[in-house]
Structure formats: C-alpha cells, structure tokens
Design a protein around this nucleic acid. Sequence first.
DNA 1: AGAGTGGGCCTTTTT
DNA 2: GGCCCACTCT
Length: 694
Amino acid sequence: MPQESASAQQLVPQEPNALRRYALKSAQPRRGLVDFDSELNDEQRAVALSPQGPTLVIAGAGSGKTRTLTYRVARLIEEGVAPDRILLLTFTNKAAREMMARVAALCRIDGRKLVGGTFHHVAHGLLRDHGSRLGYGDRFGLLDREDVKELMASATADLGLGVGQRRFPRADVLVDLYSTAVNTQRPIADVLARERPQFGALEEEILRVARRFAERKTQMNAMDFDDLLMNWKRLLVEVPQTCQALQGKFDAILVDEYQDTNLLQGEIVDRMAALHRNALVVGDDAQSIYSFRGAHFENILAFPERYPDCRQFKLTVNYRSTPQILALANHSIACNARQFPKQLSACREDGVLPALVPLRDVHQQAEFVAQRILELREEGIPLRETAVLYRAHHHAMELQMELARRGIPFYVRAGVRFFEQAHIKDVLAHLRFVQNPLDELSFKRVVKLAPGIGAASADALWSRLEIWAGQGRDPRMELSRAELDQLVPPKARPGLAKLRGALGRLSAPSMRSQPSEMVRFVLDEAGYREALKIRYSNFQAREDDVRQLADYALQAESLEQLLGDLSLLDSLEGEDVIEGSDPDERLVLSSVHQAKGLEWRAVFLVWLADGRFPSAPALKDEGGEEEERRLFYVAVTRARDELYLCYPLMHEEQDRARVLMKPSRFLDELPTRPHPPYEKWAIEVESAPPRLTE
DNA sequence: AGAGTGGGCCTTTTT
DNA sequence: GGCCCACTCT
C-alpha cells in the first residue's frame, strides 16, 4: 500500500535562501552577538563556553544536546575560528543541515561554509579531492546496498562457488560479514569465527570471495559505504602528504551521536584531530543502538582514557518529557549494567502516567491505537504531534490497514527508500554509467531494459567493452561499434541500438553539465517511458517520480555531486512514503531506530511482546539484551506528554494455531512498588470504528 | 536465451 | 508476505 503511492513522495530541493540573506547582511562574524546567558542553562553554557581541547559531553535524552552543540559552534566562530575550518560530524545529513542553519542564523554567517554531514558524506567529499592517491579515478562511483549485494553474488559466481554447492552463505550474509569486518576493524576470519561459526569450514572460500569482491569494486572504480570510511582512514595512515593536508584542514572537530560511532569512525576522529586535539564529542551511552552496524559504545566509555586531559561535561536536565515518562525511562535503563552513571531529572510539570495496554490481538491493538489517536486529536494533540513506534517495520502492517480504513493520514519513515526504487535506479544507472564508464552494474542494468536482452547478452556486451577499456579506450565512445550487434539476438538489436545511441548522446559534455536534462532525456527520448509502461501497472506514478527526480537534479552543481548526494542521502526528504494529502496533519509511523533524535507529544509503542521487542534474534548477540533495552529507552524518551505501551496477548502465527504472547521483559521488570510507573488499561473497542471527521 | 510461474524458505534495526 | 531458485514455455 504505502509503497504503491510513489507519486506522493516529495523531493524537497535543498533549501534555503535564508542563508544567503544572512551572508549578504554581514560577511564578517561579529563578536558578542550571541546571548549565551539567557539561551542556555548552566550545564549547557559550561559546554558552549569551555576552552578548546579534547572534550566529552554526556548528554541525556532531551537535554538540549543539539542546542548546546549549536551554541558551541557559535562560540568557536566568535573566538575567531573560521567557519570552513570547523568540521561537524552528525548522524544524519539532515541533522547537520539543521545545525548549520541555526549556527548561520545565530552568527550571521553563511552556514554553507561549515563543513558538516555524516561520516560517509564528509568522506565522499574528501575522497573526491584525494581519492586518486589511493588509485581511484577522479570520478569513482558509489555502490548502494543492492549494488553491493549483486556484486558479492557475482564475485561468488566468478569463483564457481555457491551454485548448488554445499551450503555456501548467501550474498547478503557475505556482505554483512565483510561490512562488520571493516567497521569493527577485525580480520574477516575473526568475524566469521565469532559470528557465523556454522560457516567456519568455508573460511578459505569466503576469504577468496571477499578478495574477488574487492577486486571487482576496484575494477569498477567504485566504492561502497564501508570503503568511504576505510579509504578516509587510509588517506590518514598511508599517504603522509594527504594526512598532513587533512589534519591541517580543520581547527575544530565536533561529533554528534558519538555513542553510535564504530571503531573505524572513532579512529578517524582521533587521527583527524591528532595535531590540535580539538575534538568535542557528544553522546549518550544509554542511547547506543547501532551495534549491529559495528557501533562501539566503548568509544564513548573509553574517551577519557584516550584523552586523559579531556574536559568532561554532563547534560542531565530533561526538557522534553513529563516526570512520569522520565521516571519510567529511568527505571528501565537502570536495569543495564554497563553505562555512565547519571541521573536525568525532569523539569516539566506533572503529567499523566504512561498507559500499559494489553490487547487481545494485533487487530485489537491496531483498533485501539487508531481510536485513541482520534480521541487525542479531539483533546488537542494533532496528528503531526503523534507517532507510533515499533521494533521492526512489519509490526505496523495491521495498523497501516486500520489507519487507511479510517481515513487517518499517516506516513511511514521507511520502507523502500525513494532512491532505491527500481525505476529511480534504472534512470540513475544511465547517469552513473556516463559518469563512471567502468560501472559494470549500471551498464548492464541499462542494456537489460531493451526487450530481448537478459543477463547473458548483457554479460557478453560488457565483456567486449571491458576488453576495449583494458586497451585504454573509453567504453562510452565505443558503443556505436557495429560488432556489438553480433553479440545479441537479432530481435534485440533495434532496442539496443536506441539505448546505445542514448548513452552516446548522454555522454556529450554539453549534456553532462545538465544532470536534470539528462534525466528528462532518459525518460522522454531514450525510451524509458515506454519501458515503464510495459513493466509496471502504476507507470504513471513512477513517471511522476522520475520527473520529480529531474526537478531535484536542477539544483545540482554537477553530475558527480548529484550522484554522490543521492547515494548518501539519509533520513527524511524524499524518503518518506506519504498517505493522505495535508502534509501538516499526518501521523508518523517509524521504527525506533529512525525515531532517534525526534520527539512527539504522544507516542504509541506497539508490539511490546517478548521476542518482538526485545527481538528474539537480537537477544542472541552478546550484549543484545542491553542494546534492546537501550532501544526501549530511546523509544520511551521520544514522548513529551503521553506514552502508550501496547502489546497483543494472542497471536496467530502464519500457518498454525494461536500463540500466547508474553509481555516484553522490559515491562515485567519495571518495579511495582510502591507504585508501578504506569497505569494499566483494560480495553473494550467499539464495533463500529469512527472515521476521521474534519 | 528470455520471460513467466510455482514452491520452499526466512522474517531486525541502516549510513 | 517477499525473495530465491528451479522449472517450463516461447
């Protein structure tokens, strides 16, 4: 359902002209403009005004971390640090943009001068300039999740492994293995032995596949997400000249969400700051929820050991939640052994107790949530101030249907990302091949659009181009050669000819300088519109998506920049699937992971059944239970005024009988004396659900 | 060689 | 419900 509504997705061009205005008003930073006294509390001000040097800030949930960081940057600028010599590493690009805009507003500078974004985003920028030092061509491509998986599968096939062979790990398992090894900086064999012992006997083969995988990426002149980080580090370790340049590039480094950095990212920060040691890291160990991605929350615990002279601060006043919600959160997280001890205190007025709501089954759960949301709306909490959070996306299936039935508009922060949808990837494959003619995956994707061309023909075509490329010829220029026709069946030739011609025209320099025009050309003139019609029933929606992509591309400065931005685009813009029309009046559905850093007046947590949240597979990992509890803590602390903890008592499994569910251990373990930190509700749901009325 | 169909499998979180 | 593989038809 939500996945179908492709056309409703919005692509918001990167704002904002407001920044430009500030830049015109006053090009010079002015001192004393920022009011640190009235805008910050004592704890926050201490951080903002502290002397430069290694600094650790433990910032509890809702304690004004972003605000503090923003004022810290403002302070640095006041002290004379040039904005373009400040590096701001955040968890999402959106967080960086917001913070930069706020700094810009505070200091009346051009916010774009600050260097900020995710580790991956910043790495991409640096590697554009210095990647050639590591042997990459100047226009290396970026591989997304799907590309990487495909490449891993094909590396496996190259070595003749996996086909019918005794249980060889699937491509996504191999990718996982490889990625964990990079992000935790351990040898693959080590990760294999610890985390996938069942494949231990295949170690040698798996290592060969990993080597082949790396080779293929090099051949393609492409990097994946992990390579971006790895190569950033390599620049710092293996290329002394570049290392010097990078270390001298910034005078101050600030890292947000430091608890979710992994070993590799931690090392990058240390090395980037090796000369001036002016690194300020902010995080909350209690909110570390990305260990599956290699996040290493010892980074934050051990920071004082790596920087014995560092200053340490804590932000312990919670501005977000009522004392009742905070009490429940504090009780829960107290069950974790490994953490920085800290006491979060509430500063808001008393509110209502969180509600603990056992429901008969998932259907009643969905009905309850939908109905209660409507009641809250009557009571003055608008839909946009309400969120439903869950451990795994499929936990919201029944709810999505129920909301649709009642006409309650919602959007899901997740699902298929806009840029990972097939039709968007098809169009971008044209552009990617033009940008990086060694991009085998993109070339094959494009030619397979021609009717009559499948994997075998695409392979044949590419092998020929690859031979020419090996002789130093540019594959883009050789596309018109007649002999390519001999490699495909006759009936495929007209379609292929059209695509070859299109790729040739797209490669012209005049085209390449206009990425938006390239998108339009692919759709209207290269025949992609027709391909869409044949392949999809909702081709109109998909065509609209492509036109939106063209609009988005208008603001790109170059093809490189556009493709880089698109691959690394994180949360929000363009990624949301929208149901319903009024963008200001929609309920949010989100995984807890994606809800990080956000807040709502009312939060519903669903599927709080043991085995779902905490999730059974996660519990198998070492430290899994504590990580799940931190996840629960993150979820609970998203709520400002009202919190509903829901779980179904009964569940019908796929094929079999009903199963009795246990409430989450995170609920059971909460103290009941003198009073439980919640109020238990008993629910009866009306048989005729009310619809949303305006 | 490609495209379409049916059966067996697993199902977490994401830059 | 979705993904992968094997099988069959064109």
